[in-house]
């Protein structure tokens, strides 16, 4: 495990290198991709990127929680959570496969 962290700038650098857009435009395209995915999720849509994975919105009902420090009961409001299911291809790649 190398333990490096990639950020937006690494992604836009890759677009700059591979596609040959300007650095500025590459950064804008990375931002647009993330923006489009976010907007779809906010609308409650699932986002499926084949060979990468699926972002799913799950509705969670209200429940009673507990403050672990004080032991006090606190109501947890119903909310939407985001779940990512990696594709088989990604799972295999992460386990050293080349698929």
């Amino acid at each position: 495990m190398a333990g490096n962290t990639l950020t937006r700038s690494d992604l836009s650098e890759a677009v700059y290198r591979e596609i040959g857009l300007s650095r500025n435009e590459s950064a804008e395209m990375v931002e647009s991709i993330l923006g489009q995915i976010s907007s779809a999720l906010v609308r409650g849509e699932h986002v499926k990127i084949s060979s990468f994975g699926t972002f799913t919105v799950r509705e969670k009902g209200a429940r009673m929680g507990r403050n672990p420090k004080t032991g006090e009961e606190v109501p947890i409001e119903p909310r939407r959570v985001l779940v990512f299911r990696p594709s088989h291809i990604m799972k295999e790649r992460v386990n050293g496969g080349t698929a």
């Binding site: 333990g3 490096n4 990639l6 993330l34």
Partner: peptide, 9 residues
């Protein structure tokens, strides 16, 4: 991720 790196956006 295949290299074991993190991607933080």
């Amino acid at each position: 991720l295949a290299r074991g790196d993190r991607v933080e956006l």
